[in-house]
Design a protein around this nucleic acid. Sequence first.
DNA 1: ATATCGTCCGAACGGTCGGACGGACTATCC
DNA 2: GGATAGTCCGTCCGACCGTTCGGACGATAT
Lengths: 200, 200
Amino acid sequence: MPSTKRDQILERAVSIASVEGLEGLTIGRLAKELNMSKSGLFGHFGSKEDLQLAAIKEASEIFEQRVIAPAGSSEAGLDRARAITDNWLEYLADGFEGGCFFHAASLEFDGRPGRVKDEIARVTGRWYVVLEEQLRRAITRGQLASDTDATLMAFELHALLGEANWAFRLFGRPEALSRARVLLHSKLAHAQGAGERRTA
Amino acid sequence: MPSTKRDQILERAVSIASVEGLEGLTIGRLAKELNMSKSGLFGHFGSKEDLQLAAIKEASEIFEQRVIAPAGSSEAGLDRARAITDNWLEYLADGFEGGCFFHAASLEFDGRPGRVKDEIARVTGRWYVVLEEQLRRAITRGQLASDTDATLMAFELHALLGEANWAFRLFGRPEALSRARVLLHSKLAHAQGAGERRTA
DNA sequence: ATATCGTCCGAACGGTCGGACGGACTATCC
DNA sequence: GGATAGTCCGTCCGACCGTTCGGACGATAT
């Protein structure tokens, strides 16, 4: 079957959570929007925490599918790093109704220890590391200057993506996305230029 | 009188909100922590929304006092920009119990139109502009290269501050703050070097 | 001494929260 | 065809939500 009821619930849950937050996502509202009873919906999950964890998993699959997977067709290293950040920006523009699910969830749960926070940290940390890994490959392949600090550069690129989401959502102006794009491309191109110059 | 009851309430409210969010801040819990009745506390504010708005104002005064005001003793331009970002990083480290109040509040309310969101956007936008203004002054004073794009650079610096808060709070590792510091200083120093070279 | 004011209280309101329960329907398998 | 398992329903619960209300208390002003 193409889409189980559970999947339909989670799809809607992720959308609501991106707007209202993972805690603001309530079972009653979710049921109402899906024309279900609370108990009928609740039966698919043992608890609200399980619903939240399932929503995180659903959102991470969407992110994987929209941002990471398509970059797999680009050559590992600098090209793939650029593909990831490009896809990431597109995902920020129209990925979820309420902006980046994980950015919002991170700041919502960073002060609430528990399984939900741990899962958010694990998943978001993974995307971060994926980007960093492509930068490392770019360095070993001579596409970036050999003295480039991949950790710092990943920090920088991820910072720009976060800022784009923040500014775009809070002020509603798409310039934030194009500004981030300009900066991301210039950083990757500049480092690339230095790397090529050095190895030439 | 040095500290009214209302001020005591708001001080506690801001601290709770930085952890639980502005919506997660409940009147009942706030009253309990202050050994007050809900209604007694409620009397100081006409509604929960007014309490939230008052908490935002309180938090902005703390930010102003810890980040912006101390930078006033540095010379306008590059020095003051550096002082602001330095103070900002310190504020991220120990400003509020649950991390940057405004960063969390921004992402919590960016999808909820209303007076609270408007106020958050207004206040956070103000800090952003203050930083950008110092960069502009640095350019006109020849402390930064004349072709520096102040808008883009402010975007970049603010992005690093946001990333530092995100990483520090989510993963609990202070390296995030020192990484941001390294990048902030190198960006300001690099642009400064270019500016000085050009005007020399 | 009395009236007035701001401050705070306990009690209660209607509403919503997460969650538990038993029953009804349907599809599947023996 | 009867038992079984899964799905969904309506109903109910205790806890908590924001909010309202009437009144108690001390200080201040008249």
